[in-house]
């Protein structure tokens, strides 16, 4: 738990759990570094996902037990992981063939900004002295079939992260399919941001107020409202 979370809506863990619910059984999935990594903890019982990490492992398992790590078995966040039965190792060109070639079903990424047409900015605040360093994010958004974003709805300063158009340097154009925040699940549609689900105790007006673009109401009633 961090002190920056809103007092209403979902916690980071609940956000990750909400994303996990929407990942179909048998999907090949790449989880970004940070909050997206939490998603693996909440995969519903009986559902099997195959995790890809872009430094060259398909079939990634959880962190090793203390003392059992291997310095040559790491994930893209450079942390030690394990390999599950059926896993494979490969070089970077093959790894990005899986990504760019459209073979991965889903990628979950963090965001600095998402625009209403699905543009994503998630690698730089664009300061003049910022070191350009994007890793694999531009390749992931260019090639993976579905891109989910998991992020706090607003910055620590209260600025909306869902905006009409991004002001930070872009990672990709029209790439985001869904956004999971502490307040709501929001789809990116040809008409713009469309509410899919509200976090418990959160109403439409609250989400609209904290969103920097027009929000369309939920398309059809669901039992969650």
């Amino acid at each position: 738990m961090t002190g920056t979370e809103n007092s209403i809506g979902w916690s980071r863990e609940e956000m990750a759990g909400r994303v996990a619910q929407d990942i179909p059984d048998g999907s090949y999935v790449n989880l970004g570094i940070g909050i997206p990594e939490l998603v693996a903890r909440f995969v519903p019982e009986g559902r099997e996902l195959i995790y890809h990490t872009e430094n060259g492992l398909l079939g990634m398992g959880p962190s090793p037990e203390p003392g059992e790590g291997d310095p040559e078995l790491i994930n893209a966040g450079k942390r030690q992981v394990t390999a599950k039965p059926g896993a494979s190792y490969f070089h970077q060109s093959d790894s990005f063939a899986m990504i760019r070639g459209g073979h991965l079903d889903l990628c979950v990424l963090g965001a600095l900004q998402v625009s209403q047409n699905g543009d994503l900015a998630n690698w730089s605040l664009g300061g003049p002295d910022d070191i350009p360093a994007v890793g694999g994010a531009m390749d992931l958004v260019a090639g993976v079939k579905s891109i989910f974003v998991i992020t706090q709805h607003c910055t620590k300063d209260g600025a909306p992260k869902l905006v009409e158009s991004c002001t930070y340097p872009l990672t990709g154009l029209r790439v985001v399919d869904r956004v999971y925040t502490d307040l709501a699940v929001i789809a990116v549609t040809p008409e713009g941001f469309q509410l899919v689900e509200l976090a418990p105790g959160v109403d439409f007006d609250t989400v609209q107020e904290r969103t920097g673009a027009r929000l369309l109401p939920i398309a059809e009633p669901t039992s969650n409202v």
Partner: peptide, 10 residues
């Protein structure tokens, strides 16, 4: 620095 995405570098 010549800024290159990871997959493009590979």
């Amino acid at each position: 620095i010549e800024f290159t995405p990871q997959g493009t570098l590979a």
